[in-house]
Every structure is written in structure tokens, then in C-alpha cells.
């Protein structure tokens, strides 16, 4: 049974700066990382391999250099890694992205029974949290979002029970397989690749599927298939801050100053 983890290569957003002229991200020299939430999606797929013998596959849509992300997944132990890359996929919004991913998952499911699709709850660059649910609706899968624990997986009855982490409460829900799950960081602790696995992964052939494999209508993918686009990116203006007191030599006095200041602005309730 297949367990597919969707992972995305994202720029390390702590290092991204915005070009004030063009309002776009300056990506030169910025290292790419695996979207942090996706590392938990990947880990869950791997742990289901360890516990139930499911076959973990990593799936990513992106430019050719996103291969590095999939290679990392290989070093962690996925059975297969597939990069969905084609010029016509470029510039996609969440709708067009989920179409391509859904189509690839459908194709994989033709050969082997699909169990679970894991996605991170959102990416740190787009922050939309739409792609996972988008895949589920394109494929007609049950969707369980914001999962922080797999409570029970019954492969015979093909049912899964999970815990969702919501604001101020947890929710236990159950669904039949196949299912799409988006995960939060509390779900697991991602493993660290061993050196032998890393060395193995250096020579692994990451499969690349372009649109000739998927055969999607080019009008429905990439920029052309995207009803939304980013018109402007900017950093919100903030009031100039100020440094008060001398926190190193007089922490107590500084803390008092800070409290007074907050009280005077009515930002603290006593």
C-alpha cells in the first residue's frame, strides 16, 4: 500500500529579502530547504513503512533543482522519489499545483493501492494551506487537516483515526482510506539521515515526470491554469522602535521601565 508524502522545496524564508523596486523575493544566494512542515509529512510516511510495511514515496513539484529536496528524502529512506517538473508547470498557484500533484498521485495509484497522502499543513513561503485540501478534493479523498497524532490505523478495515490540533482543543476523527492528511510539527520528530544512506542517495536516480507523462491540458496547469497570482509583496511598515534602559547592567530597572511604558500605553492589564 502506498503512502505518498508531498514535499516542497522552499527558500529559507528567514533569509529572504524583498526587492523594494520589483516587489519580488530576492532569491539569489538564498539557500533552499525542505518546507519544515513537509519534513514531518515525510517522517510519518517513513514511520508507517517501519511499523506497517507501507511503501513510502516522496513527491514534489518544482524546478529541476528541486531534485536536491527529493535526494534528501531518499537519504531518509523513501522507496521512490518523483519530481514533477515541466516548464508549463511554472508559475502555478495552489489550484494548478494541486492539479499536477493530484494527477501524479492518480497515476501512482493505478499501479498500487493508495493508502495515505501526507502534506505539511502549509508552506513557509506561500502560507496558504490550500494545496493539501486541493489534492483531496481533486481526487475525491477524505481530508483530515492539522493532524498531530495518528491514533489508530486499521489496515484490514482500511480506517484511520487521528487527532486534529485545533485552537484550544483537540478533535479525534476517523475516516476510511484512502485519505489525505495535513500534518503539524507535533506529529513526530523527523529522523536524521545516516551517512551510509546519504551516500547511497547521492547516486539514486530521482524520477522526473514532465507533462508528457501526466498528459494534462496545458491550459489548466502552471501560470495559465492559475486563477490567482501575486501582484505585490511588501514588508508592512512598522513604527520605529526604541531601546529603553540598559538591560545588561540594570535588568531590574529596565524591566520596570518597560512595564511603565506598557502600562502608559494601556497595553497591560493589571
Amino acid at each position: 500500500m502506498l503512502v505518498i508524502s508531498c514535499i516542497k522545496q522552499v527558500p529559507d524564508t528567514t533569509q529572504v529579502q524583498i526587492d523594494p523596486e520589483t516587489n519580488t523575493l530576492i532569491r539569489e544566494g538564498i539557500p533552499f530547504i525542505v518546507n519544515p512542515y513537509d519534513t514531518h509529512a515525510l517522517e510519518e510516511g517513513l514511520s508507517l513503512k517501519d511499523r506497517f510495511g507501507l511503501r513510502p514515496v516522496a513527491l514534489s513539484m518544482g524546478p529541476p533543482n528541486a531534485e536536491a529536496t527529493l535526494r534528501k528524502a531518499c537519504a531518509l529512506g523513501v522507496d521512490d522519489a518523483i519530481l514533477l517538473s515541466d516548464r508549463c508547470f511554472g508559475g502555478a498557484d495552489t489550484l494548478a499545483t494541486s492539479r499536477v500533484l493530484a494527477s501524479a498521485i492518480e497515476k501512482l495509484a493505478e499501479q498500487e493501492e493508495l493508502g495515505i497522502v501526507f502534506c505539511g499543513k502549509q508552506t513557509i513561503d506561500g502560507d496558504t494551506a490550500q494545496v493539501g485540501p486541493g489534492i483531496a478534493s481533486r481526487l475525491g479523498l477524505q481530508q483530515l487537516t492539522l493532524v498531530d497524532r495518528i491514533v489508530h490505523l486499521d489496515l484490514e478495515k482500511k480506517r484511520i483515526r487521528v487527532r486534529r490540533k485545533l485552537e484550544g482543543r483537540h478533535e479525534i476523527v476517523e475516516a476510511p482510506l484512502p485519505v489525505m492528511i495535513t500534518v503539524v510539527r507535533e506529529l513526530n520528530r523527523p529522523r536524521y539521515p545516516t551517512v551510509p544512506m546519504r551516500l547511497e542517495a547521492e547516486d539514486v536516480m530521482v524520477k522526473t515526470w514532465d507533462n508528457s507523462v501526466l498528459g494534462l491540458d496545458v491550459e489548466t496547469v502552471g501560470l495559465k491554469g492559475s486563477p490567482t497570482w501575486v501582484s505585490k509583496i511588501f514588508s508592512p511598515e512598522r513604527d520605529q522602535g526604541e531601546i529603553i534602559g540598559d538591560g545588561i547592567n540594570d535588568p531590574e530597572g529596565t524591566a520596570n521601565l518597560l512595564i511603565e511604558k506598557l502600562l502608559s500605553k494601556d497595553l497591560l492589564a493589571i
Partner: peptide, 22 residues
């Protein structure tokens, strides 16, 4: 332990990732 077994105190995972990425 680190290179063949990936077994180390869990707080080191962050350190290793931070070192490699940043």
C-alpha cells in the same frame, strides 16, 4: 552513533539542521 545509527539526544537534531542549513 550519529553517522550510522542517527542516535543522539533529541536536542541535537536542531543543532545539526541549523549547522547544515545556516
Amino acid at each position: 552513533l550519529v553517522q550510522e545509527k542517527s542516535e543522539f539526544p533529541e536536542e541535537l537534531l536542531n543543532l545539526f539542521e541549523n549547522m547544515e542549513q545556516r
